[in-house]
Computed example of a mutant assay.
Amino acid sequence: MDTQEAFLKAKAEGRPALIPYLTAGFPSREGFLEAARAVLPWADLLEIGLPYSDPLGDGPVIQRASEVALRKGMSVQGTLELVREVRALTDKPLYLMTYLNPILAWGPERFFGLFKDAGLEGLILPDLPPDEDLELVRKAQEIGLKTVFLLAPTSTEKRIETVVRYATGFVYAVSVTGVTGMRDQLPEEVGEMVLRIKAKTPLPVVVGFGVSSRDTARQAAVADGVVVGSALIKALEEGKPLEALLEEVLKGLKEASFA
């Protein structure tokens, strides 16, 4: 199943796509795989975070998860192996959220080629404005990886036009100007931001940074998909069932869609 098929399937069911996020190697290597097995039945796509020592876009929950994973020996190579193992479990699209430095350290062509061969569908690149390194973006696309970039509520019309020009998987709309994290509610302007982006591109628009409950899912349901990240990682930290959280989010998405 490719990205377009995943979004169309969710749309046919009358709801936005549900995209869980898990940090590779958290709470442990096997714990990550157990979590992946738990969330995959609920997921339309799965986002896997590559642990990184300086995750500027991540809030404290995901930062802690990265720190734990790195202390336990998780690495780019380890993440590559986990992607390969998750691919053996599912045909759903897998996206890697990674900062730029690990790509440059491995060499873009090697990094992209190995992850593509492991079964990755695409890359989410939070710290790369696409027009700042067009050669790297084109190399990823030539190798066959979809590219996803972030837009924020403060993004200008010109910035939106630039980002959507180079996005090929979906467009990631950050619900707040800030870092990832759980929130009781999303800003009122989320819907307006999604509509502004959708006016510029036929690609799906996904909302992330803050979807953590039935209520916030309802607020985000104007988008084509929602990412659930910090709330899942927090549930993993506390040993709570991931399925219960995803069921609540899915209820919110369906309620909003039929409202």
Rank of each mutant, 00 (worst) to 15 (best):
L94Y: 04
L94W: 04
L94A: 05
Y95S: 09
Y95T: 07
M97L: 14
T98F: 04
T98P: 04
L100D: 10
L100C: 13
I103K: 14
L104V: 13
L104T: 08
A105D: 13
A105I: 14
W106R: 09
W106E: 14
G107T: 09
P108S: 11
E109S: 09
R110N: 13
R110K: 15
F112L: 06
F112A: 05
F112I: 02
G113C: 01
G113S: 14
L114N: 04
L114A: 11
F115H: 04
F115I: 07
D117I: 00
G119Y: 14
G122E: 03
G122D: 00
L123M: 10
L123V: 11
L123S: 11
L123K: 08
I124H: 05
L125G: 08
L125H: 10
L125T: 06
P129Y: 11
P129N: 10
P130R: 12
P130S: 14
P130A: 13
P130G: 13
E132S: 14
E132K: 07
E132Y: 14
D133T: 13
L134V: 15
E135P: 15
L136H: 12
V137M: 10
V137A: 08
V137E: 11
E142Q: 12
E142R: 10
I143W: 02
I143N: 03
G144V: 04
L145Y: 15
L145Q: 13
T147V: 13
F149A: 00
A152W: 06
P153G: 05
P153R: 00
S155T: 08
S155C: 08
T156W: 11
T156A: 04
K158D: 12
R159Q: 12
I160K: 05
E161T: 07
V164N: 01
T168C: 05
T168P: 07
G169V: 02
G169F: 06
G169E: 05
F170R: 03
F170A: 08
V171W: 05
V171Y: 01
Y172T: 01
Y172Q: 01
Y172K: 03
Y172C: 02
A173D: 01
V174L: 02
T177G: 06
T177V: 15
G178C: 11
V179H: 13
V179M: 12
T180S: 13
T180N: 09
G181P: 15
G181V: 15
G181N: 14
M182R: 14
M182W: 06
R183L: 14
R183F: 09
D184W: 03
Q185T: 04
L186G: 02
L186Q: 09
